[in-house]
Nucleic acid binder design. Structure first.
Length: 965
DNA sequence: ACCGCCGGGTGCC
DNA sequence: ACCGCCGGGTGCC
């Protein structure tokens, strides 16, 4: 079969058949109408995927029939969902009508269904229903249908309906047709105040920021099991989270009227009380201690509003059950993991007594309540606590008192009362009594951080079982998992588990916590579905960035929180997302209320009692001048003299820029000599350039030279965009630019593009990318190891610091990766523990390096060797409070960014930066250029970009300054 | 469903 | 009687 044959309707058929399980009822087969181009456009993109760009085609009053056959009921003005039912044995065109709870109410009348089936199946239209009068109908009821779709399909849909004898009513005035183009309003409420795009955008940006200054100021002392003292804002987080988990309040947008519960958004009502949302979104900025807050929550609201007590007798360390080989290479940890696996027998015993609770709860209620509350303590406290009640009780009482301050509406709660209430409440579902374990789902990269933090913050004598559910050895037994206190796992494991019917989804969790919760924002991703289907009473989402792109991202999170009625995307979309994107002020207000009620967010600018949540400690930058040794000075001066001669000649000839590569090579050599003589590769021989070879050979040499310049780690800039090089490429004339920049130049100057720096002819096909990882260390292996003046200065600074405080961590930064290697040797000699991060490392190695450095363990490395450009802005190295910048960068901003990797939220110590600069050298001249650039950046904001000639002028002047000419 | 529709019974007034 | 009309049976898709 040729592709040409496939391209027509057959292809379309295959495509829709793929997405539609009922192959024989695939709409295309019955869609015998004009298959014009407009309809083809809609086939490929599902209208579901881009709900925001839909317009309202028109309205129609239809009928719902067959009410008496179904249990679903609707109220006046209640929203209903329309669902195609292509497998209905009586009518392949059938369209089901469901209420907000997903219960079937009836069907659309068959004639109408016949008209709708095809256009619905082909995603040409999305139809929404509101029943204007639904309360007392027995056999049929009216339904107001609104037709939504992509603008280009409007005529097709309207024409199609007309053909079946249905004329869509035009959209009434004041009701929005388009997002933000005309009036606005939802299909249920009439014209609302509309916002402009700008207003909407501002409101949207403010959505999470507004949460900062509100009433979530209650504080709660954590359980004694938490050994780290909480900061004020963390106690606030704890109070808020505990009160949300124990909340008996109706969820937002629900009202009780007589014996029914009404949803005010959809007008849906039901007898059963909607579950409180026992959880929410903790959206604190990075560094505010979300992890600690959650650990405190787990220990403080451990069971029935009670903390996990400390068992005095137990001297055993806290347990970390790891079924796989330890995540870190730490041998201590590995042995501890092994030892802890024997621990399981104890938890199993506890599990069987939980079953006993379940059986008992079927007894007559009266007796039961009391017994349960009494027994409950026994079951949930580790056995040994019983023998030493003196230990656990004071902390419980303290907790009860603290809780009375934090729980709304209840004045004074005794411990007993809480338990009675909960027991009665969940009596019907005795299963809930079995729930013990908290599941923490996080990206694999932060899993070891959780383990570290548990070890750091939980008192060692506390008997807390943690199981790391990861790796091939993990237990497939749900019971093992449900008997843990904490199970840690990764998103990919949850996803894999979901597809393979493994235990994670069988356990009834007490609590599920999603770390970096924004990772589930794609509603169609398997991962999202896997996470949504976890069974838990309490649900939390931790994220620093709750909304990344649009409102759409929120749905997955809200659905995970089991926030009725938003679990189903349709109701979220109809009641919040669309009204908001259409600029409806009421919709926005609803969204704001919603977010406010379930989110706690503090940022670095949030204030508690007028003081910033976290005040960044000071940062001090010192320059330490280095004097070269006589020998180093001799080499430096000889290279400098040679370089000055060559570059001086270029200046006289006016050919500095055409020989830019040579110039840079000289400068790099000088900068390297300031650091360590061994950095200078012997292949740097400026005389080779002078020798005339064939044009091909010459170019080859130039290109090799610039490659050396690039791979030596210097921070070269693109002369076109003035930013750091993005995909560096080399021209035939040996000038280096960002690939996108120079390609644009070549494109716009077609066909005679010239190099912006030297005006030689340039062609796209001659551009050469620098081969990514060329890491022959320029420092020769056969050279005998020696130190350098700067290296000596570094080591003595580090040694002195270690004497003062051996736990202080440092970052050592250089642009030359080979220098980092030399430093490694020196560090090793002096017995420093270090790790390294540079551009050549795989993502996996990078995360490993970052984690081991950030770890608080006593045996973690105290030094991080960092290449200047390694890692993005996000790189977080707050474990360090000292920075040693071994060589100045061209661009002061690059240095600043580097300092900020440790001087950022989460830093608790004063940060001291030391810049090593060799006196009377190219480095000192670089400082002059830096301060010039700083002035430029500060003063000339908003002025035009410098022209080509200005750039050239500036470059030439820079070179003059650098080489002292 | 106090409808519409179907189909059998029926047939001057 | 190949109609009209009556009234019972019946009822989503």
């Amino acid at each position: 079969m040729s592709w040409g044959f496939m391209r027509g309707s057959a292809w379309k058929f295959l495509q829709s058949a793929r997405y539609n399980n009922t192959a024989y009822a695939t709409p295309n087969m019955f869609f015998d109408e004009e298959q014009d181009s407009a309809s083809a456009a809609a086939d490929s993109t599902s209208a579901e995927d881009d709900l925001d760009s839909l317009v309202l085609f028109g309205l129609f009053r239809g009928n719902v029939v067959g009410l008496r056959y179904y249990t679903g009921v609707v109220n006046n003005n209640e929203m209903v969902a329309l669902q195609r039912e292509p497998n209905n044995p009586y009518d392949k065109n059938a369209v089901k009508v469901n209420n907000v709870n997903g219960e079937q109410v009836g069907h659309l009348k068959k004639e109408l269904a016949a008209a709708l089936a095809q256009i619905m199946d082909r995603n040409l239209v999305r139809i929404e229903g509101v029943v204007p009068y639904g309360a007392h109908n027995v056999f049929t009821m009216p339904v107001n249908l609104s037709f939504w779709g992509r603008e280009e399909n409007e005529q097709l849909v309207v024409g199609h309906m007309k053909k079946y004898g249905y004329k869509l009513e035009p959209v009434p005035k004041g009701l929005g047709r388009n997002a933000l183009s005309k009036g606005a309003g939802s299909s249920t409420s009439l014209p609302a105040v509309q916002l402009t795009i700008e207003q909407l955008k501002t409101e949207f940006d403010k959505l999470f920021e507004d949460l900062k200054e509100d009433d979530k100021t209650q504080q709660l002392e954590p359980a004694k099991a938490v050994q780290t003292p909480l900061l004020t804002h963390q106690k606030q987080a704890l109070a808020w989270m505990v009160s949300r988990e124990n909340s008996q309040e109706l969820p937002l947008f629900w009202e009780q009227r007589k014996d029914l519960y009404y949803n005010t958004l959809t007008n849906f009502a039901e007898k059963e009380r909607p579950e409180s949302v026992r959880g929410g979104i903790l959206a604190d900025d990075m560094g505010l201690g979300k992890t600690l807050s959650v650990i405190a929550l787990i220990l403080t609201n451990f069971h029935n509003g009670q903390p996990l007590p400390i068992t005095e007798v137990q001297s055993r360390k806290q347990k970390t059950n790891t079924p796989q080989k330890s995540l870190t290479s730490d041998p201590n940890k590995r042995s501890r993991n092994k030892a802890s696996q024997g621990q399981c027998s104890e938890t199993r015993a506890m599990g069987s007594s939980q079953e006993a609770t379940c059986a008992r709860s079927k007894r007559p209620k009266r007796q039961n309540v009391k017994r349960d509350s009494d027994d409950s303590d026994e079951e949930w406290l580790p056995r040994k606590t019983k023998s030493s009640p003196a230990c656990s009780l004071p902390s419980d009482d303290q907790f009860a008192m603290a809780l009375s301050g934090a729980t709304q509406g209840v004045k004074k709660i005794s411990k007993k009362k809480i338990i009675d209430k909960t027991t009665v409440q969940s009596h019907s579902k005795c299963v809930q009594e079995l729930r013990r374990a908290t599941l923490i789902v996080c990206p694999l990269s932060v899993m070891s951080n959780w383990i570290d933090q548990f070890e750091q913050h939980v008192r060692p004598e506390v008997n807390l079982n943690i199981y790391v559910y990861y790796g091939p050895e993990r237990s497939k037994d749900p019971k093992t998992l449900s008997q843990q206190d904490v199970v840690l796992t990764s998103y990919s494991t949850v996803t894999h588990d979901y597809a393979n019917n493994s235990p994670l989804h069988k356990v009834k969790w007490l609590r599920v916590v999603l770390d970096e919760g924004h990772t589930i924002r794609n509603p169609n991703a398997q991962q999202t579905k896997a996470v949504h289907s976890l069974d838990a009473l309490r649900r939390w989402v931790l994220t620093g960035t709750p909304i990344q792109n649009s409102l759409k991202d929120l749905w997955s999170i809200l659905s995970f929180l089991k926030l009725k009625p938003f679990i189903d995307r349709e109701w979220w979309h109809r009641t919040i997302q669309r009204p908001v994107t259409m600029g409806d002020k009421d919709g926005l207000r609803r969204l704001q209320t919603l977010i406010k009620s379930i989110t706690l967010r503090r940022t670095k600018t949030t204030k508690v009692k007028g003081k910033l949540v976290l005040e960044l400690p000071e940062r001090k930058v010192y320059i330490q001048y280095i004097k070269l040794s006589t020998e180093e000075q001799r080499i430096y001066e000889s290279v400098q003299t040679e370089g000055k001669t060559i570059i001086g000649r270029y200046f006289r000839e006016g050919t500095v820029l055409t020989h830019y590569a040579d110039v840079l090579a000289v400068l790099v050599r000088l900068r390297q000599l300031c650091c360590h003589p061994h950095l200078v590769s012997s292949s740097f021989s400026s005389t080779s350039l002078a020798a005339r070879s064939t044009p091909e050979e010459l170019r080859e040499k130039l290109v090799n030279k610039i490659k050396l310049v690039l791979s030596s780690g210097s921070d070269e800039e693109c002369a076109i965009c003035l930013e750091s090089l993005n995909i560096p490429v080399i021209t035939r004339c040996a000038h280096v630019f960002c690939k996108p920049c120079i390609c644009q130049v070549i494109h716009s100057e077609k066909p005679n593009a010239k190099c912006p720096l030297c005006r030689s002819e340039i062609h796209v096909e001659h551009l050469l990318e620098c081969p990514e990882e060329e890491f022959e260390t320029t420092a020769k292996k056969d050279q005998k190891w020696m130190s350098s003046s700067k290296l000596d200065a570094l080591i003595s600074a580090l040694t002195e610091q270690r004497k003062k405080d051996p736990h202080v961590k440092s970052i050592i930064v250089s642009q030359f990766t080979s220098y980092l290697s030399l430093i490694e040797s020196a560090l090793g000699e002096s017995g420093f523990m270090f790790t390294r991060l540079d551009g050549s490392m795989t993502q996996k190695k990078r995360t490993e390096a970052i984690q081991s450095f950030q770890s608080t363990r006593v045996d973690s490395p105290t030094i991080m060797l960092l290449s200047l450009k390694a890692g993005g802005v996000g790189l977080n190295l707050t474990a360090a409070s000292r920075v040693f910048l071994m060589d100045p960068a061209w661009n002061p901003a690059a240095e600043e960014q580097c300092f900020d990797r440790c001087h950022r939220l989460g830093q608790t110590k004063e940060v001291i930066v030391t810049k090593f600069v060799v006196k009377d050298s190219v480095e000192e001249n670089m400082l002059k250029i830096q301060s010039r650039k700083r002035e430029l950046a500060a003063g000339a904001f908003g002025t035009n970009k410098p022209s080509g000639s200005e750039i050239k002028e500036a470059r030439i002047n820079e070179i003059r300054t650098l080489i002292d000419l």
